[in-house]
Design a protein around this nucleic acid. Structure first.
Lengths: 335, 335
DNA sequence: CCCTGATGGTGAATCGTTTCAACGACGAGA
DNA sequence: TCTCGTCGTTGAAACGATTCACCATCAGGG
């Protein structure tokens, strides 16, 4: 277990400094020695100790990423994008799933701080602006993901949720729907609140349209099913004729509860639009209309900005905002 | 940035040893001193340096987990289970996604070795048995996930894929189907091969039943769509009347290609059974029959075994095998 | 009044790597 | 022959937390 650089040096008949050079700047070492050292490494099964390396370097070569929900394909795709970009720079991504719980979010940030990560990507949940700004002030770059920074201290890569919400509901209204419900999930989540604001805008533009807000406790399939059952249990006259779901997981749950029961037809009785356009959206009972976000690109871009800021701490914070895109499928087609 | 335990000691007017004691064994320190040290920590914004801690300790307090595909909800659920269990023991889980690529798998194992993780959970892809056994021999426990160990050197937590394959195809045959196709993904993946073996068993038990094997390159929605398009393009007489898909992602892709085109009806023309019973399976165009695996429990169990072996290296390897369960939905109902 | 044990605290050694000043050897140029 | 620069190599310091042998103080028992 305990084979260190010292053992390698001894075996190869050189000093530890030389072994380190072989590992990090082989060009400064003669070929003969490089060969001997590599032989010794192989024979002894030496594996570099990253802790010592980091201790000396003062910081790790990893970046941290905290997402709201690792089970949501939207965030998995962001993570994938970030990992791709990271791999190109020889950086590892530590993935933390806050599971929409502020205390888990805080725990991951603690962990990342103790690890002295090169930077932090975070899709923030609780009110941690102050903490993140302090982190950055102390030299650890922070990039907000899927959420616009509120002031110009931090960089962010996000999607225009307000526009997304407006687009979704405008589309529903154009289909002739008037009694729209927003199946929200937790309104405390900024993205949800922004989508709601966009939805309100769209509804305000059409005189006889109404918007009902149904707040839930999570952005999951299970919660969607729960809310769908509540809707299905209503008398038909009190049901909305259109539902805008805060994300596709909720929408999938809604579909399960509404369509499977057979009482409510989609889109005839209720049209549905989801958000994120996850892979599964095209394969649901009734293929789901959705608002597409460039998830992978978000991850890539965020990581690139993070590394740039890590290399040059003086860089001014940047806000990148992508535009979402409506994808129409059967769940909201004319009916 | 560089506030160390020494700075805290100085500020609190005690020695570094005492600060360390406050952090790790507060009961050995007087209350007054504990208070002063905590004040100093707060005032200076001290954050423990994990690298130094690990260096001294000789190993980290993290475990590594390498999964085949982080986008597959089955593996996300395993990860979730492992994290839950880890959180209870104050251990962090480093998640690596091999993306079905042997070189990425190897890279993550390298990384975990350098980090001196407490142990490794791995859903192995390539032929890395030897490497894993060496790792374990050197003191790092290894638990195979979703795959039974081939000899008794490593522990494993898996599901009986052979039984799962047999169950799935037996069910299709009981529905009166005879021309079964196995949409496989890469046969080099052990789980896929085992499911195929089970399927062969089931087919062999029925005289006039046949099994066609369609090998693919990945276990993804996209690949499923590709293979579904190939099936749909065949003349009806040459199409199978039942498909067993190696996992639900493939099955979802198949559904997209078959049903969306409108030419092939499910289950009337082709019955489909998937594998994993992911959340989305119940919400697909035609709700998908599937083989359910206790994914979360797999993750939990694997992590528990890992930590037990880490605490007591002498422990004999254990093989835990769960039984899968058929969930019948419309995609394979009588038709 | 001395001894014992418990309690609370100290400070140096240690973990494994990287870095850097310094050094020897050697060839080229004067 | 002497000097200088280059190249390859060395060895010790440094990173920051933990641990452990050791010390100081004090209360209580004899």
């Amino acid at each position: 277990m305990a084979v260190s650089i010292r053992d390698v040096a001894e075996r190869a008949g050189v000093s530890v400094g030389t072994v380190s050079n072989v590992l990090n700047r082989p060009d400064r070492v003669s070929d003969a020695v490089v060969g001997r050292v590599h032989d010794a490494i192989r024979e002894l099964g030496y594996v570099r100790n990253d802790a010592a390396r980091q201790l000396r370097a003062g910081r790790s070569s990893s970046v941290g990423l905290v997402v709201l929900d690792a089970r949501n394909p939207f965030f998995t795709d962001i993570a994938r994008g970030a990992e791709d970009e990271a791999a190109e720079h020889g950086v590892a991504v530590l993935l933390g799933d806050s599971d929409e719980k502020p205390e888990r979010e805080a725990a991951y940030l603690d962990l990342f701080e103790e690890q002295r990560v090169r930077g932090v990507l975070v899709s923030p949940l609780g009110d941690i602006r102050e903490r993140l700004e302090r982190l950055r002030a102390l030299g650890t770059p922070v990039v907000l993901v899927d959420r616009m920074a509120e002031d110009d201290v931090l960089s962010s890569v996000s999607v225009d949720d307000h526009a997304g919400g407006r687009t979704a509901v405008t589309h529903l209204l154009e289909q002739g729907r008037r009694r729209v419900a927003f199946v929200a999930g937790p309104l405390a989540i900024r993205q949800v609140a922004d989508r709601l604001a966009g939805a309100r805008d769209a509804v305000a533009a059409v005189p006889d349209a109404t918007l009902e807000v149904l707040e839930g406790t999570a952005l999951s399939v299970l919660e969607g099913r729960r809310m769908g059952e509540a809707l299905a249990a209503r008398p038909a006259s009190e049901r909305p004729d259109a539902v805008f779901a805060a994300n596709d997981l909720l929408a999938v749950g809604l579909l399960q509860a509404l369509v499977m029961r057979g009482e409510v037809r989609v889109p005839e009785d209720v049209a549905i639009v989801g958000y994120d356009d996850i892979d599964f959206a095209a394969a649901t009972v009734v293929p789901l209309s959705s608002i597409r976000q460039p998830s992978r690109l978000i991850g890539q871009t965020a990581l690139r900005i993070l590394l740039e800021e890590a290399d040059d701490p003086g860089l001014a914070p940047r806000q990148v905002v992508f535009q979402p895109e409506l994808v129409v499928r059967e769940s909201s087609a004319i009916g």
